[in-house]
Amino acid sequence: MTIANSSRSRKAKVQLFILRVLAYLFIGILVAMCLFFFIMLLLMSSKSNSQLQGAFSLKWGGHFLENLHNAWNDASTNIPRGMVNSFIVAMSSALITTYFSALTAYGIHVYEFRFKRAIFTFIMAIMMIPSQVSAVGFIQLAYKFGLTNKLWLLILPGMAAPVVFFYMKQYLESVLPLEMVEAARIDGSSEFRIFNEVVLPIMKPAVAVQMIFSFVSSWNNYFMPSLLLTKPEKRTVPIMIAMLRSADYSKFDMGKVFMFILLAILPVMLVYAVLSKSIIKGVTSGSVKG
């Protein structure tokens, strides 16, 4: 009896061990796949054009700074200008989207008013409509009123972001005690001050997470900007990257191309390296509630 038991438990242990090895292997392969392209990018951006035209090698090329210098100073692409434009759009969008979403969520959460439910239901309904449905009319209006090449046209629509609003609303429901608002009122604070100085600080974690998400989606956005920004000095980074694709590769410095790609994704990667934990937490909480 005891012998049978112990052999069974030994068998179970071996089984578990094998399962564990397989699980780590499986995770390892997927992690390697994700890192592979990033490492290849770093490696390739260290190679000179002639190294890239020559035989394949996994050795560090040693021309990283040279490529960086060439890419940064390339007049026809003007990546520094693109990065500034992208940063202006992404940063302002992130600020505007999170502030007004939080404000709207607070307005609906805290106050009692007649159309409260109707307005909430309406915002939930428009969340489902894909953004491309408005693109045609948006572009047409932009051309009609001569507003192409205006960066603010890519920023202001962020004031109405139903998804971010929903996240903020959920967050407020879980963290904001209404007594706190009452107390602030007794202290004589105006409603605006209560929101800015009492509520917003409480919402900091939610605001931070949503700021990162809206910054990233704006930084990476290609469809609308490519249709609206026609002047070279107004182009954002994704437009510049997409334009590299149509270059003539027999004449083009490939080391520079890899460096452009690296520069395009670097800002987001750096933010991610620092804040990955809270970003992943944001994905989790957003999904459970959504």
Binding site: N220, V237, I241, A264, I265, Y272
Partner: peptide, 11 residues
């Protein structure tokens, strides 16, 4: 494994 989600699709 989440990292590629943040990389610019065009890049």
């Amino acid at each position: 494994i989440y990292m590629p989600n943040l990389i610019m699709a065009s890049a």
